[in-house]
């Protein structure tokens, strides 16, 4: 099982921006300990949600060439803590993206209320010994479909985003010349 910290994409514009939602549920076990009798969504999991949203946004843009991993969190400012029943809307955009890294900045709202401002910085570990793929092609595509990327996704020129065929996603080890 993987921990998903976004539930669904509402908008996805390739190479530019995306909107996703996360609904907080009392059935999430960790909320029973954070805190007993007072369930609050941990800020760290909001950051992870932005990392997942940003990682997919950046990864799709570069054709999943390599492994964009969360390398630092330059900014994480929170106004309050969400409770079960809240739906968090994450809006994020790519500030910059290059072969070796990317910065994604975004805001979280609950309704009209600003909840958080987060920046996540990714490094592409293409050229290191850790360059093995974190997901199989099939897992990656299944995840993208499950999160609705191809249901709402648009290319930079506004056409419907089409999923790559299995086998079209480059292998980072091959790209690094080690296979």
């Amino acid at each position: 099982m993987r921990w998903y910290w976004i539930d669904r994409f509402l908008e996805f514009e390739s190479g530019r921006a995306a909107v996703a939602v996360k609904t907080v549920s009392l059935s999430e076990e960790h909320l029973h300990d954070h805190f007993p009798g007072c369930p609050l969504m941990p800020n760290s999991l909001v950051i992870e949600g932005f990392a997942q949203l940003g990682g997919i946004l950046v990864g799709e843009h570069i054709g999943f060439a390599g492994n964009m991993i969360l390398a630092k969190v330059p900014k994480a400012e929170f106004e309050f803590s969400p409770q079960p029943g809240d739906t968090l809307t994450y809006r994020a955009k790519i500030e910059y993206v290059k072969e070796d890294g990317a910065l994604v900045a975004g805001e979280s709202h609950i309704g009209d209320k600003l909840h958080a401002k987060v920046e996540v910085f990714f490094a592409n570990v293409l050229e290191t010994d850790r360059s093995r793929r974190l997901f199989s092609d099939a897992e990656l595509l299944a995840m993208m479909k499950m999160l609705g990327v191809y249901r709402v996704g648009r290319t930079a020129t506004g056409e419907k985003l089409v999923p790559p065929k299995l086998g079209e996603i480059p292998d980072p080890a091959r790209l690094a010349g080690r296979s």
Binding site: A71, K72, P74, E95, Y96, D100, G101, L103, A123
Partner: peptide, 13 residues
């Protein structure tokens, strides 16, 4: 070390 990459990107932008 990772900050140097971030700084370079921000300077470029």
């Amino acid at each position: 070390s990772i900050d140097f990459l971030d700084i370079v990107f921000r300077l470029e932008k």
